[in-house]
């Protein structure tokens, strides 16, 4: 396992610094600040099969994003979750519904490149069962406040996110940081046809629980015209979390369609 982690970490670092000659598509587990024109919709899903210390979960969200203008986005995520807990309990239900809003406050464009920053909030409604998995189904109200920055050029692309997740009930607040790199395997072309590799890191600090985890996701994406298909595998590089919150691995399978 250690070798596997070392290998993936090294691959990620190599990916970051050899970071492609070409542009790439939207990240898989990370977020992006680029918005594709006001008045458009994106329907997407990112099915996650997650294994943790307390059981396995299959999370299936239906996400609808709407761009009000070229710099403002609202979205609703309606997920279902099915679970098998370590104590033998199993079932499926509606998970926590999420409302997302993003506002782009900085845009610096150049020929074949752009740098953008957006403010972001994600409001999690307590519609799901209390399964004890914060991002999937906690049955608790959560408010996430952060910003996403991204630089994309024909040479390389980076996405960066920093935010605070506040849970009024309990002591599960955490600070989250995401860093993603894309490595396109095909020459940029329009109409769009791409195969992209993604190297994405997620860190979470739960200061009240004295927990910390660093996750690494290796992803691949096929994109054609206005549709993408995503596949990613996420595993922990550092897993210093409370016993009942230990993350083992996740497999992501998704698609998105812009219209």
């Amino acid at each position: 396992m250690k070798y596997c982690i070392k290998y993936l970490f090294t691959l990620g670092i190599i990916g970051c610094f050899s970071a492609g000659l070409f542009a790439q598509g939207p990240p898989i587990t990370a977020d992006k600040p680029i918005m594709l024109g006001g008045g458009s919709f994106t329907a997407k899903t990112l099915i996650e099969h997650r294994k943790t210390a307390i059981g396995t979960f299959k999370y299936t969200p239906l996400m609808l994003h709407y761009l009000i203008s070229s710099n403002a986005l609202v979205a609703v995520h309606i997920p279902r979750v099915s679970y098998e807990l370590a104590d033998g309990t199993s079932g499926q239900s509606l998970a926590d519904v999420k409302i997302l809003a993003k506002y782009q406050f900085l845009r610096i464009d150049g020929t074949g490149k752009t740098f953008r920053m957006v403010a972001k909030t994600l409001q999690t409604l307590p519609t799901g069962e209390a399964l004890g998995v914060m991002e999937l189904s906690s049955g608790l109200y959560q408010g996430y406040y952060g910003f996403v920055a991204g630089y994309e050029s024909l040479k390389y692309g980076i996405s960066f996110e920093l935010g605070l997740n506040n849970i009024p009930e309990g002591d599960l607040d955490f600070l989250q940081h995401k860093l993603g790199f894309g490595l396109p395997l095909l020459k940029p072309q329009y109409p769009n046809r791409q195969i992209n590799l993604f190297f994405e890191y997620t860190q979470q600090w739960l200061w009240e629980q004295k927990g910390y985890q660093l996750l690494y996701a290796q992803g691949i994406q096929y994109a054609r015209k206005n549709i993408t298909f995503d596949l990613a595998y996420q595993l922990p590089l550092v897993n210093d979390m409370p016993q009942n919150m230990t993350f083992n691995r996740s497999l992501f399978l998704g698609t998105r369609f812009t219209f």
């Binding site: 458009s40 150049g110 490149k113 692309g157 329009y190 769009n192 791409q194």
Partner: peptide
């Protein structure tokens, strides 16, 4: 039109889609 900020093919799609209006 010379357009700045097209950092990826998806950006080009967004531009074309807007002009299809």
């Amino acid at each position: 039109v010379q357009v700045d900020g097209l950092g990826c093919p998806f950006c080009a799609y967004g531009l074309e889609k807007k002009f299809k209006e």
